Computed example of a mutant assay.
Amino acid sequence: MIEWSGALGTVDVLFPSVPGDLWRQHESWLEPDFLNAATGEWQTNAQTWVLRSAGRTVLIDTGLGSEEPREAGVLEERGGDFLDRLAQAGVRAQDVDLVINTHLHSDHVGWNTRLADGEWVPTFPNAQYLISRADFDFWNPVNGHTPASVFQSADDIRAAFNHRILPIHQAGQAVLWEGDSHRIDEDLVLELAPGHTPGSAVLRLESGTDRALFVGDLVHTPLQLIEPDHEICTSEDQVRAARSRRRVLEQAAATNSLVVPAHLGGAGAAEVTQSDGTFSIRGWAALADA
C-alpha cells in the first residue's frame, strides 16, 4: 500500500558514487518511475506490504505516519488516510497480528504508533512488533550513537525513537530479535542484512513454489540491482551495506526469488539473474496497491 509517492532529492547527492553518465546510460528505463531525468531527482514511494501467513495478518514496515513534524517538508504533502485505506483493503488496525520493522528509520516506523489523548500508543493494539535488537540499541538516544544520516537532525531521530518505538516497548508489544536470523513461521524468516543500519533485515518468504525477498532499504533504486556496489548516502556503513546487497541478490538469483524493495515506484518487485558475477533484471512484477 503506497502512502506517499514523489521526488525526493537529486541522485547526485543521494548516490554520490554513481557517475552521472551511468544514470544517463540507463535513464530510458529508469524514467519516469525511478528517475526524473530532467531534474535529476530520485522518484520514490513510502509504502507498506500486507501478507497473510499461518493464519496471521502481517505488515512489513509502517510508512511515514502522521502528526510528526519533519525537516523534509516535501513529506508533509502526504495525506493521513493510511488507516482508512488499510481498512478498505480489508485490514483493520485491530486485525493486525504482526508488524515487521525491517529497520528503524523514521519512514519505516511512522504508523507503529498514533496519538491518543496526547499520548503515543501502539496503532495496532493486538500486534507483536518484530524489531532487531541491533537497531533498537543503535537508535535508542540513551546509548549516545551519532548516526550518519544527512537528512535527519538529532531531534528528529530522538523523536522517531521516543514516539514510534519506545511506546511499543513500554506496552510489552516489542519482540527484540537477535542473531543472524529469526524464524516467524514455516514460510517466513527474518535475516540480518546490516549496513544501511546495524539491524537492517530482509524478510524471506518461501511458500510452496513461491519465493520472495522483502529487502527493505537494501535497494533504493533498480540501478543497484545491476550495479550493487553503489550505496545511498544515508547508510551507516556503506561498504557493509553493499556487501549485504550483493549477498542477498546472489541468494535471489540462485533461488528464483522475487526482490521486493521498500521504495521502488512503478513495478514493485523484480526478478534478477546472475552470470559471471554480473546481475541483470529478467523481469518486473507489478504488485497491486491497496
Rank of each mutant, 00 (worst) to 15 (best):
Q251L: 13
S235A: 15
I281Q: 02
T234H: 00
R246S: 13
W284D: 12
P261S: 05
A252Q: 08
V272P: 10
L264V: 08
V272T: 09
G283S: 12
Q238E: 15
L287D: 04
D229I: 03
E271D: 14
I232T: 13
L249M: 06
L225M: 04
S235H: 02
R282A: 14
V248K: 00
R243W: 13
R243C: 11
L258T: 06
Q224R: 02
I226A: 03
T255R: 02
A285I: 03
E250K: 02
G277D: 15
A286L: 09
D276E: 15
H263K: 03
R282I: 00
A252E: 10
I232D: 04
H263L: 07
G265Y: 08
A285G: 06
S235T: 07
P261I: 01
T234C: 08
A267S: 13
A269R: 05
R247S: 12
S244T: 15
I226G: 00
V239R: 04
Q224C: 03
T278V: 10
G265D: 10
E231S: 09
E271C: 07
V239Y: 12
G283E: 11
A242D: 15
L249C: 06
V248S: 10
T234S: 12
R243D: 15
H263S: 14
F279M: 03
L264N: 07
S257G: 05
S257P: 14
P228T: 11
L225Y: 00
Q251W: 10
T273L: 09
E271H: 15
G283W: 08
V260H: 09
A241T: 04
W284F: 08
R282P: 00
S235N: 04
A241R: 01
S235L: 01
C233W: 00
D229A: 06
L249I: 11
R243N: 09
A269N: 10
A241Y: 11
L258H: 06
R246M: 14
A252H: 08
S235Y: 08
G283K: 01
Q238H: 04
G266T: 13
R282T: 07
S235W: 05
V248Y: 06
T234L: 05
A262L: 11
R240D: 15
E227W: 03
D229T: 10
H263T: 14
R246W: 15
R246N: 10
V248D: 07
Q251P: 13
A254R: 06
E236P: 14
D276R: 01
R282G: 13
